[in-house]
Structure formats: structure tokens, C-alpha cells
């Protein structure tokens, strides 16, 4: 009976997260459209104007669900507050970037500060467990790595939003993998956080999937990336998350290594071009960054919907490898 009551309490958190995010995103869409905060959907032939900053709805859903979770599980409040404030700080940086545009070097630097709640509230465990190696004791290095981890995850998600629904869909798959891992490894705080995040992401995906009715904006991408990073750190799921996050890491690594510096999408040649029949194709411009989308399209043009499907397959395969990594963690003495 007690177990059933606990499960019911756990289910309330994602339900609240999904409901608030869903209606929040709808409200934000109406507001941003009326304020003229819209962006062109550049991979459509007619380039329709789509409301931006739908990610605010995700932050609304996460905020209300975290407050609900704190009321239901008071002993987890510190972890939940740390998670939410990390996402909110990254969201604020993203909102500023959406409205005023930040320098491509300043943005990653600022996202380092989103990790402050985790460091100040000490909601991490420096005894990271690695597959094959086992438990480590990284009492000095681990806290130094946290700001870098949050900056990497938030900016990697920010860079991985080429087509309708790719960011929200791939991050949903990653959250689902982390939820499974958290359940199997009995990381209770991570179960709560990942279920809330997954529910908010599914609400965003509903509006952001092809053909998109809203864009998440940097407020969404940076906060979701920071939230995933915080979840990995606080749930002690670092290596599993790193493997599940491989498509985002690869996309960022390919882009940065081919350009050789931090860049803003507007400042470099477009990696994708649109054909007369509306399909998307890889650019053959040698100066364009080699992004994951460009790699997928290298073998020939695809419809946008087809390209998005491949992103999901890749994310799913990374998720399976992440679960294999989790198994290796479980059998490592």
C-alpha cells in the first residue's frame, strides 16, 4: 500500500509538468506572436514566421512541478531547488540572447554560472562511478568540472536545433533513457527530475514537431541543456548521460572542429540548403560547418520530416548504448 502511494505521488509530478508546460507554451505562443517575437522557419520554401521562446512554457512546467515535488517529497527539496535554479539561470541567459543576441564567446562563458546552485548547495557526489574503473574519488577535479559540464550540455543542445522537433525530440529520448537508468539504479531524486523534464519536453515536442507551431528559442535550448546536465550530475548518471548525449556532443564537436572557433549560426555559411522541391540538402561549401544535419544529408537530399526521423534513430541508438553503459556500471565491482 505504501509503495502504491509513493508511485502515485511520483506520477503526479510529470502530470503537473506536462499540463503546465502544455498550456504555458500555448499562452507563450499567443503572447510572442502578438509582440512580434517570431522567427522564420528557414527550412521551408515559403519561410513562415513562427512564434519564438516556447521554451518559457517548459520552464513554467518545470517550476510548478518542482514545487509540487518539493511538497510531496520534502526530503528532496535541496536537490529539486538546485535543479530548478540551474535551469532558470540558463533560461535567463537564453532569454537575453533571444531578445538582444549575445556574442558567441560570451554566451558559453555565461552558462558556466548556471552551475552555481549545484556548487553552492553541494548537490553533487564527487565519488563518480565509471564503467570498468569503478568508484573514483575526484574531490578536487569534480567540482571544477561541473561548470564546464553545464556549459557543454546547455550549448550543445543550443547547437542541435536544425529542424522542427529535433531538439525537443532527441532531448525527450535522452530524458527517457535517464529515467529508465534512474529507476533501475534506484536514484530517487533523478526519477523525479527526469520524469518532470520528460513530461515538459513532450509538451514542447507536441508544438515544436514538424511542421513547427513554435520554436523553443535559446531560453528553451539553454535551459533544457542545463537541466539535462544538472540531472546527470545530481542523479550520479554522468557517464550514462554522456553516452545518451552523444548526438549533441558529436554535433557540437563536428561544428566547432570544422570551423575552428566558437561561432554564431548567422556568422558562418549555412550547412544546409533547400532545393526547389522543398527537400533539404547538405551544402558543398567548404567553409560551412560540418554539423550532424549536414552529415546526415551528405548522402543525398531528404525531406525535413525524413531528416528528423534519422535524428531520432541516432538518438535511440545512443540511448541503447547508454543503457549498455549502465549495465557495465552495474557489473563493475
Amino acid at each position: 500500500m505504501q509503495g502504491g502511494y509513493e508511485i502515485l505521488k511520483c506520477l503526479i509530478v510529470p502530470i503537473v509538468s506536462f499540463s503546465v508546460s502544455f498550456f504555458g507554451i500555448r499562452g507563450v505562443m499567443r503572447k510572442t506572436r502578438s509582440l512580434g517575437i517570431v522567427g522564420a522557419d528557414v527550412h521551408k520554401k515559403d519561410k513562415p514566421l513562427i512564434p519564438e521562446m516556447g521554451g518559457i512554457g517548459v520552464l513554467m512546467g518545470l517550476s510548478v512541478s518542482v514545487v509540487t515535488a518539493s511538497a510531496l517529497f520534502p526530503d528532496r527539496t535541496l536537490d529539486l531547488v538546485s535543479f530548478l535554479t540551474t535551469a532558470l539561470i540558463a533560461g535567463l541567459i537564453g532569454a537575453y540572447d533571444d531578445l538582444r543576441t549575445l556574442n558567441p564567446k560570451v554566451k558559453p562563458f555565461l552558462t558556466l554560472f548556471a552551475s552555481l546552485p549545484i556548487l553552492v548547495l553541494h548537490t553533487y557526489d564527487p565519488r563518480m562511478v565509471l564503467p570498468i574503473v569503478g568508484r573514483t574519488r575526484l574531490t578536487i577535479i569534480y567540482p571544477l568540472m561541473i561548470p564546464i559540464a553545464i556549459a557543454v550540455t546547455s550549448n550543445a543542445v543550443n547547437m542541435m536545433d536544425p529542424f522542427n522537433g529535433t531538439m525537443s525530440g532527441t532531448c525527450s529520448i535522452m530524458s527517457f533513457v535517464l529515467l529508465i537508468s534512474a529507476v533501475l539504479l534506484s536514484r530517487n531524486e533523478a526519477v523525479l527530475i527526469s520524469s518532470a523534464l520528460l513530461a515538459a519536453l513532450l509538451a514542447l515536442y507536441f508544438f515544436n514537431r514538424y511542421p513547427a507551431k513554435t520554436f523553443s528559442g535559446d531560453v528553451g535550448t539553454l535551459s533544457i541543456g542545463a537541466a539535462l546536465g544538472a540531472l546527470a550530475i545530481m542523479g550520479r548518471l554522468e557517464i550514462i548521460a554522456a553516452v545518451a548525449f552523444m548526438p549533441q556532443i558529436m554535433n557540437a564537436f563536428y561544428g566547432l572542429s570544422s570551423i575552428g572557433r566558437l561561432y554564431e549560426r548567422r556568422d558562418v555559411s549555412r550547412p544546409i540548403r533547400i532545393l526547389h522541391d522543398g527537400r533539404v540538402a547538405a551544402s558543398d561549401d567548404e567553409k560551412a560547418p560540418i554539423t550532424l544535419a549536414r552529415m546526415i544529408l551528405a548522402r543525398g537530399p531528404l525531406t525535413e520530416r525524413g531528416a528528423v526521423r534519422i535524428f531520432f534513430i541516432l538518438s535511440g541508438i545512443s540511448g541503447v548504448l547508454a543503457l549498455v553503459t549502465m549495465y557495465l556500471l552495474m557489473v563493475t565491482p
Binding site: 565509471l130 564503467p131 570498468i132 574503473v133 553516452v243 552523444m246 558529436m250 550532424l292 552529415m295 546526415i296 551528405a298 548522402r299 534519422i310 534513430i313 541516432l314 541508438i317 545512443s318 548504448l321 553503459t325 557495465l328
Partner: peptide
């Protein structure tokens, strides 16, 4: 298209595990 990515992914993943073993 998927195979291109999967081969690189498996290479990166196995190198990560091999690297951890070499260091440890």
C-alpha cells in the same frame, strides 16, 4: 546514412571505454 553515424558512435564509445581501462 545511419550506418555512417553508428560506426563513428561505436568507435567513440569503445575508445572511451578503452581509454578508461588504459588510464586505470
Amino acid at each position: 546514412r545511419v550506418a555512417d553515424f553508428v560506426l563513428i558512435l561505436i568507435f567513440v564509445w569503445s575508445c572511451m571505454l578503452l581509454g578508461l581501462w588504459v588510464i586505470d
